[in-house]
């Protein structure tokens, strides 16, 4: 008897979990690295407010 795979039953194929981890890391890095750069630069310019 053929195996009841999602394709045979017409059900959507589940997303492989292993593929998602690198994708999660890359997408979060693409947005958090520039944000961290912007935060660092902004905090640098805030310093005179408390020292000057």
């Amino acid at each position: 008897m053929p195996e009841q795979t999602p394709e045979r039953t017409g059900q959507p194929v589940p997303e492989p979990t292993s593929n998602q981890v690198p994708r999660l890391v890359v997408t979060w890095l693409v947005v958090t690295v520039p944000l961290a750069y912007g935060l660092f630069q902004t905090i640098k310019s805030v310093v005179p407010l408390f020292t000057g």
Binding site: V13, P14, P16, Q20, L24, T27, V30, V31, L35
Partner: peptide, 16 residues
């Protein structure tokens, strides 16, 4: 999305 797609991929997509 196919079942199992991580919803935590959506916030970085929006942030981009």
């Amino acid at each position: 999305a196919r079942p199992g797609y991580s919803r935590w991929l959506i916030p970085p997509a929006a942030l981009a």
